[in-house]
Every structure is written in C-alpha cells, then in structure tokens.
C-alpha cells in the first residue's frame, strides 16, 4: 500500500471533524492538480508525435517509402531522400557502441567491483562529469583537438597498415565517420556506465560470496556471476546509449564532415539525420524542404522512442524484480 492510500484512509476518519470539509476539498483539489500535471507529460509526448507527423505530411505524401531509400538530396530540384543521413547516423552510432560498450563495462566494473574503496566515489563523480560537458563544447574540442589528432596520428598508420580493407581506405582528413563515432563514444560512455553501475550495485552480495567461497578469483566471480546476473540491465544500458547516440546533434554536426554520401571508409565524411536538421532547418526556403527535414525528425523520433522503450523495459525489469530471487 502506498503512502497516499494509507493516508487517505487515515484522513477518512478525520473528515467529520471541524474544518474537515474544507480539508477534504483541499485534498481533492490537490490530487486533481497534481494528476493534471502528470497527465501533461503524457499530453506532451502525444503532442510532439502529432505535430511532427502533421508537419511531415507533405513530404510523406510526395516521397512515400522512397524517402528512406533514395540517396538524392537536392533542395533546388526539390527531390529528397534520407538514406545518406540514415546511413551516417547508424554508422557513427555503431562505431560509438563498438568503442563505448567494452569501455563502459570495464569502467563500471572497476567502479563497483575492483577500485579501492577511497577511489570509488571520486572516480564515479569524474565519470559523471563527462556527461556534464555540453555537446557543443565536445564539438569544439572535436574540431580543434580530436580531428587534427586523428588526421595526423591515428589515420595515417591505419591507412598504411590496414589500407587493403575498404574500411580503412581514403585520405586522412580527420573529419568523418570515425571522428563522429569517437566523439559519440565519449558522450555515451558515461550514460552506459551509469546504468551498468546501478545494475551491478543491485547484484546481491551473496551472489558474489557464493562464487568466492567456491575458490573463484575476483575476476572469475565478475565474469561468471556478476555480469551474467545483470545482463538484462546491462543490455538496457547499451540500448539507452544507442538511443542517445542516434539523436545526438551538435558534436556530430561539427566533426562528421556534413557531406550526404555513403562511403565504406571510416575516414570518409558523412552526414547524420540530426545534423542535416540543425544545418538546414532555418535556411530551408521551400515548404517541401522543411517538410522533408521534419520527416527526418519523425524517423529519428520514432526510432529513439522505440529504442528507449526497449531500454527502459530492460532496466526496469532489473530495478523492480531481481531475477531469480528466492521467493519467500
């Protein structure tokens, strides 16, 4: 029974006393006011959905499913296809996941299981501060620090040694998919780490002790018991990170190169869905151009909503019911 129910029962007995009538009305008003505000959140999400659909209608009607498969983006001829942007968003997010997931797992494990006790707090705060740095500041850092570093130090040796693979072919220009992926990885690592950390903290102590008592090392305990125990929540954290990477705008816009092309190379410039909106929205002159940009936002919205629903369901499952707990 929740606090409110319990208290309403208590108050029911008091209602008849002097002043009880106004108190009752006050409570009714209070309940309805807060309920109204809670409903506003539902309304907000529905309204976003509705408005974005309505505004993308011209583009939806004119281009249909071809919008998703066409690579042409020509505001002058008023022909629009979103495939290059979808490709850029998906590719940069995947690079980010490949880099960020192992890193987040290691960091979270370190913070929860391995770090000396005095280090856990400060290191945890430092990782959380990573998430506090605004996207645009990462973008600035990306333009002037990361991109030159990739251009001069990372990409040339990769091209020399692995250049026979299409993935590592092309000139080292710094801006491009790799830069976007790296910067996204930096931005989602604290998010994924935070979720995994919470998940690992919910793993009961007796699970670790049971494995240790069998003569397992700390690493074996983590690998065989702790991480498997939290796998659903960990997956939720990874998917949540993916959602953030897909929708991230500024830092990507500043380093991805902003060229609507589909190339296999990590070093090639590309364009992302969020970036094209940020760059072209206020300069779009024709109604259909605007509508096409809104349709890109609609796709982004639907995909991130689905991904977030999936992630939250996985994370909620962990935080609510501990799987496999003995029922008593």
């Amino acid at each position: 029974m929740e606090a409110g129910d319990r208290l309403r029962t208590v108050r029911g007995g008091v209602r008849q006393t002097a002043g009880g009538r106004t108190a009752y009305l006050g409570d009714q008003f209070f309940l309805w006011l807060t309920r109204f505000l809670a409903l506003a959140i539902l309304a907000l999400l529905s309204l976003i959905f509705y408005e974005v659909i309505v505004a993308s209608k011209p583009s939806l009607q004119r281009f249909g499913f071809g919008f998703l498969t066409s690579t042409e983006w020509d505001p002058v001829a008023e022909r629009f296809g979103a495939l290059p942007f979808i490709f850029g968003t998906v590719a940069s997010s995947l690079i980010a996941l490949i880099l960020a997931v192992p890193l987040s797992l290691a960091v979270a494990t370190f913070l929860v299981e391995l770090a000396p006790w005095w280090l856990r707090g400060p290191a945890g705060v430092a990782v959380e501060l990573l998430a506090a740095i605004p996207s645009v500041v990462y973008g600035l850092w990306g333009i002037f620090v990361l991109v030159p570093f990739l251009r001069s130090t990372v990409e040339p040796p990769l091209i020399r040694s692995l250049g026979f693979l299409p993935l590592f072919r092309g000139p080292a220009i710094g801006v491009g998919l790799l830069a976007a992926g790296v910067i996204l990885a930096i931005m989602i690592t604290p998010i994924i780490t935070a979720v995994i950390r919470e998940v690992l903290l919910t793993v009961p102590r007796h699970q670790r002790e049971a494995m240790l008592a069998l003569g397992a090392t700390r690493w074996e305990t983590i690998r065989l018991v702790v991480l498997p125990y939290g796998r659903a929540g960990i997956l939720g954290g990874v998917i949540l990170g993916l959602g953030r990477a897909l929708g991230e705008t500024m830092a990507v816009t500043m380093v991805i190169g902003n060229r609507p092309e589909i190339a296999l190379s990590l070093f090639a410039p590309a364009y992302s869905m969020a970036s094209v909106i940020a760059n072209e929205f206020t300069e779009a002159t024709s109604a259909i151009h605007l509508s096409a940009l809104v349709e890109i936002a609609l796709i982004l919205f639907l995909v991130t909503i689905l991904i977030n629903i999936l992630a939250r369901l996985l994370i909620w499952r962990v935080s609510r019911a501990v799987p496999g707990a003995v029922r008593e």
């Binding site: 999400l45 974005v52 705008t249 929205f281 940009l293 939250r312």
Partner: peptide
Amino acid sequence: FVADVLTGVPSIVVGIF
C-alpha cells in the same frame, strides 16, 4: 514510463516541435 522515454527524445526533435 513516458517521462523516462521523453528524456530519450533527441533535443533536435524537441526543437522542431
């Protein structure tokens, strides 16, 4: 649930809205 999902909506989409 919706509040949690709403935090995941890309800010650029909110801008368009």
